[in-house]
Design a protein around this nucleic acid. Structure first.
Lengths: 194, 194
DNA sequence: GGTATTGTGGACCGCATGGTCAATAACGAT
DNA sequence: ATCGTTATTGACCATGCGGTCCACAATACC
């Protein structure tokens, strides 16, 4: 009952996400958020509490989608191929667009805001679990040595992926990142006797 | 001639560095900078122009030292051992202390401030060159397959190192990072027939 | 149609921000 | 001792900040 909202919450969160990704948390003013979302100050505060509340919502959304996106990308029939495509995709795309919110919130806030820290830590754990799962499948499929520790390899893949994001955003050329990905894949232990 | 400075510029830059590393660029106020450095507003502005000027000086210093630190760490007699120690050191230390200024400035400013972008890009290029050099030496010393592409492996090591920094700062446990480092080292191509 | 309820817009607030400036202090040179 | 030069201090400024609040609008319910 009563007056319904005039805005689509999803769209507002995405607009705010764009602003935060481009300027960081402290660097994004309420005016910018109002401009990006099209909402007035009152609506923004009524809906999300305050700037930090909005950020937390945006970050939560972003983390969830990031995790889901990795999970989905690694689903392909042949895990090793899915991994390759996924990492090459990261290498090719991390140059473009605003920075990953997981990366920027880690650098800017994780150490200083417990909620942010918890959110990104959890996201990374889940993404790592995806990588571990992919490695395990690749072992089952005979593409990675079954004696290798999937946890260690998953952790390595996570580190590489975060490195790609950082370097891409810093302007390291795409070809360089692609080569690094190829080297990482080449370093995955092959099954013996094949 | 004239009145000499009362402060040690090096000390001031390091104090400012601490503040910027902890709170980011936009998140650090002039009051905090004054408090950290012990300088008055006027002195700060007379010496460095403005907040951004101070940040650029701090970042430049930090980048230079970071590059030098990696170069020095990789100097050991046996390149492969130096690499291992260096990466393990990163894995163990990236949990502690405020974030790496290269990481935070990349996330917060590289895309939006050309000078910052240039500085971090250059730093990463130089660090990568150090890794490439270490790989080449390890090849000469018979610890890495001479047929491997040192550029690709150096790029991979750079990506791993940046990933370690990000994940450590996000609170990923040290043991996880150490395992990832071991996996990365284990994946470096061994020379044939040994 | 009236009313209760919720959403919206923007005026408004106190304050901290980044930045300027002029008065003053501390030196080197002569 | 004087003077020119530079460093330091902190008062001062305009502005934009995050946040609050209230009058008004739009709906659901009866």
């Amino acid at each position: 009952m009563a007056r319904p909202r005039e805005f689509d919450e999803r769209a507002v969160l995405e607009a705010a996400q764009g602003a935060f990704r481009t300027h960081g948390y402290a660097g994004t003013s309420l005016q910018q958020l109002m401009g990006a979302t099209g909402l007035g100050k009152g609506s923004l505060y009524a809906a999300f509490g305050d700037k930090r509340g909005l950020y937390l919502r945006v970050l939560g959304d972003y983390a969830q989608r990031s995790v889901a996106s990795v999970e989905q990308a690694l689903e392909g029939p042949r895990a090793i191929d899915a991994l390759r495509e996924h990492l090459l995709g990261l290498a090719r795309s991390s140059n473009t667009g605003p920075s990953c919110l997981l990366a920027s919130s880690t650098a800017e806030l994780a150490a200083v805001d417990a909620d942010v820290g918890q959110c990104v830590k959890r996201a990374f754990r889940e993404i790592e679990a995806s990588y571990v799962g992919a490695v395990t499948r690749a072992q089952d499929e005979g593409d990675i040595d079954a004696d290798a520790d999937p946890k260690a390899l998953g952790g390595l893949l996570l580190a590489v992926s975060r490195g790609l994001e950082a370097l891409g955003h810093a302007g390291v050329p795409e070809t360089s990142l692609v080569q690094a990905v190829e080297a990482a894949l080449a370093g995955l232990p092959r099954p013996p006797g094949r």
